[in-house]
Computed example of a mutant assay.
Amino acid sequence: MKHALALAAIALSSSAGLAHDFQCSGTEPFWSLTIEDRQIQFSSPEGGYDLAPVEPGSARGMAEDYVLVYRTHKASEPTEPVTIVLQKSLSSPCSDGMSDTSYPYYGVLVSRETVFAGCCLRK
């Protein structure tokens, strides 16, 4: 997980035309994030919201799907930025700590209110 936050500061290049569908989740607290072609949805026990759909950026000099960064905002509040960083787990798979499932991506969602970290897989 530590790499995802550090890599969020990497300069990004455009990755137009990529269609990535992901399902992300985390525990303590439980939360989920669904990224689909035309919609991004976040939910947690405290509530949820839709995010404006955007194409992800990727880290320069890396494979296009190694680090994906979605710079978006709450659909109902365009002045509320949200950043989603997904990083492929090359050396050790992401674990949710609750199951034996190994996930190929680490995921971090950053909003003004909080940061959620967890695991993701392609749908």
Rank of each mutant, 00 (worst) to 15 (best):
residue 1 M to R: 10
residue 3 H to D: 15
residue 6 A to N: 13
residue 7 L to C: 07
residue 7 L to V: 02
residue 7 L to R: 10
residue 8 A to F: 06
residue 9 A to L: 08
residue 10 I to W: 05
residue 11 A to N: 11
residue 11 A to P: 12
residue 12 L to N: 07
residue 13 S to P: 09
residue 16 A to S: 10
residue 19 A to G: 10
residue 20 H to I: 03
residue 21 D to P: 03
residue 22 F to Q: 03
residue 24 C to M: 06
residue 26 G to R: 08
residue 27 T to L: 09
residue 28 E to T: 15
residue 29 P to T: 15
residue 33 L to T: 09
residue 33 L to P: 12
residue 34 T to E: 14
residue 35 I to Y: 02
residue 36 E to M: 09
residue 38 R to Y: 00
residue 39 Q to K: 13
residue 41 Q to R: 14
residue 42 F to I: 00
residue 43 S to C: 14
residue 45 P to R: 05
residue 45 P to V: 03
residue 45 P to W: 04
residue 46 E to P: 02
residue 47 G to Q: 01
residue 49 Y to T: 05
residue 54 V to K: 10
residue 55 E to L: 15
residue 55 E to Q: 12
residue 58 S to Q: 11
residue 58 S to I: 03
residue 59 A to V: 11
residue 61 G to N: 14
residue 63 A to F: 09
residue 63 A to M: 10
residue 64 E to P: 07
residue 68 L to F: 00
residue 69 V to R: 14
residue 71 R to Y: 01
residue 71 R to D: 06
residue 72 T to R: 07
residue 76 S to F: 04
residue 77 E to A: 14
residue 77 E to Y: 10
residue 79 T to Y: 02
residue 79 T to D: 12
residue 82 V to A: 08
residue 84 I to G: 01
residue 88 K to M: 13
residue 89 S to Q: 02
residue 92 S to C: 09
residue 92 S to G: 08
residue 93 P to W: 03
residue 95 S to V: 07
residue 96 D to W: 03
residue 102 S to E: 13
residue 104 P to Q: 01
residue 104 P to W: 01
residue 108 V to W: 01
residue 108 V to A: 12
residue 109 L to F: 01
residue 112 R to Q: 15
residue 112 R to M: 11
residue 114 T to P: 00
residue 114 T to E: 15
residue 115 V to N: 08
residue 116 F to M: 13
residue 118 G to A: 06
residue 119 C to M: 05
